[in-house]
Design a protein around this nucleic acid. Structure first.
Lengths: 166, 166
DNA sequence: TATTGTTATACTCTATAACTATA
DNA sequence: TATAGTTATAGAGTATAACAATA
């Protein structure tokens, strides 16, 4: 990313694109395909999300569960699985790890003894605040080439789309 | 998606959100996290991309290779692997399948006998045109809740981001 | 010595099914 | 009978390493 930005002269990039493969192939139909672009940007965001969460011994998955635990809504494990499009069996191990680290608690539901409500501990909330700050900073840098208005439209467009799909 | 749209009264959705988990959890920090939203929308786009490509016996991966083969730039397998962030060993089997179906050809490079250039056959180009039309239509429907301007900004923001990352 | 395409292998991740305890 | 959480297992998907041909 930075390598490309620093080696390409701005006006040269506009008038005489580099002859390397990436530039050539980005001129193909695929380079304008929203699905392809989504996959590429999403994979990159996930990669760098994991990198920025590494100092906290978290990844995008455990961070997501922690975030839901901090939401104040005390979601069930099933709700987390549905919301994150994960199999319930895989949510178990993530929570196991978070609970082992005393970041979240499984609280028995008062109304249904089968279900367990998820709740962050004070330590979990504290770690989440730091982690959230770190990822937010990383995101700001990652999308710093966009204008404030473009970032706003991108975020709202993604959110409204995510709300529609099941 | 459609189920949600049809069961929620518009004004009710604005004034009194449903008490179900998805709505509640979408109000959490995670529901505004660009990385999370990207992952969710991207996964959904991939799923429905594969569905719309099924009539052509393609998936998003083989479609991508076919698209690059139709670009007129005759990319090498290595270039395809780099551009699609795939391991070269996995590109082989995709091309094997496309070549078996006589949709693409491996053309020996005149300048380097190690490399093989990728080229679509007339049949491959024809199939690609149909497939491209189908996915474009699916995308139009998938993002029909966005205004033309929002779609434009979304596409350009994703493209400029994808161009920056390596 | 490095690189392209290829093959074979090992490993991780994920989906599936089964189990318990509740409802 | 159905559901929440859990466990175990099987399968798919992926990364890794090694190979021959060529640069």
């Amino acid at each position: 990313m930075l390598a490309r930005m620093s080696t390409v002269e701005p006006d040269e990039a506009l008038t005489a694109p580099e002859p390397d493969a990436a530039s050539r192939l980005f001129d193909s139909d695929l380079g304008y395909d929203v699905g392809f672009l989504l996959a590429r940007v999403s994979a990159w965001a996930s990669l760098h999300g994991n990198l920025s969460l590494r100092p906290f011994d978290l990844n995008v998955r455990s961070y997501s569960i922690l975030a839901l635990s901090c939401s104040g809504t005390r979601p069930t494990q099933r709700e987390c699985a549905d919301f994150l499009s994960l199999d319930p069996s895989r949510v178990v191990s993530v929570i196991d790890e978070l609970e082992r680290r005393k970041l979240v608690r499984r609280v028995p539901s008062p109304s249904d003894r089968r279900t367990k409500l998820l709740e962050a501990t004070p330590a979990g909330r504290e770690l989440f605040e730091f982690a959230r700050e770190a990822t937010a900073t990383a995101d700001r840098i990652a999308f710093s080439h966009l204008s404030a208005e473009e970032r706003r439209v991108l975020a709202t467009a993604l959110r409204s789309t995510a709300l529609l799909i099941d």
